[in-house]
Amino acid sequence: MSAPAAGTAGPDVLPPRSARGRRLGPGPRVPGLLALGPLLLLAVWFLGSATGFIDERTLSAPWTVVATAGDLVADGTLPDHLAASAQRALLGLVSGIAVGLALALVSGLSRLGEGVVDGPMHVNRAVPNLALLPLLILWFGIGEEMKVITIALAVVVPIYVHTHNGLRAIDRRYVELAETLGTSRTAFLARVVLPGALPGFLLGLRFAVTAAWLSLVVVEQVNATSGLGYMMTLAGTYGQTDVIVVGLVVYAVLGLLMDGLVRLVQRRALAWRRTLED
């Protein structure tokens, strides 16, 4: 915090700030400041379209996009596609989180489990999701199953890697404490392991949410008859730039909203921490 302005409560005389006492952290939170970057982007888009700097055929103007969005909502196209996409993303996300979390616990708490699970997880991490797609289509067809599995596979990786890492970073001294208190395995898991791995898990969750949306676009553009990705691919064939941009904006807004949601959970769940975040 900077020196209080004249007239505010506080000590009358503050010692002059020297380099020695300089604040090195980012300082306290300013409400709404997190919206600054997105708002700047919007402003550039708006100004560029208004001045004709951005060609309508390259990128539709904001007002065109808003009008198109209105039309798409009115005739039910957008809500239908959005619902289809959201269902896929959510299913993939939930199952991916469950599997990733379970694997991270197995691998983090047992050496045998680590030997079995860790290698395949890193193989999965090294192979790009897109490269797996042809194989997944052969195995599961082109229905919902394939789509949800592809999304889940993309979600499992960040959840696993970050939860496992967070779990292994738990201070050994707490494990020792649990031993002296005669803690049962269940209580150890509930009171020490899970809360201790929570910061890692939540970081993984932020990556996972993004990964879920990314995979969603890919699977919907490959073979689908519904969903946001399908709507955009179709618009691409007809040269409807405005519809494509509507799809992009919806993706962006949803991505930001979900990330914001995870961050909110993060701040609530990690109230015990004293970090630069707070």
């Binding site: 001294r173 649990a178 209580a187 009171r191 921490r273």
Partner: peptide, 21 residues
């Protein structure tokens, strides 16, 4: 056992730490 550091679990409130297990 009491350690040199208090070894309170940082993610549990004080009472939850005291009654742990």
């Amino acid at each position: 056992m009491v350690f040199q550091d208090s070894r309170l679990l940082p993610w549990q409130r004080v009472l939850a730490n005291v009654v742990l297990s």
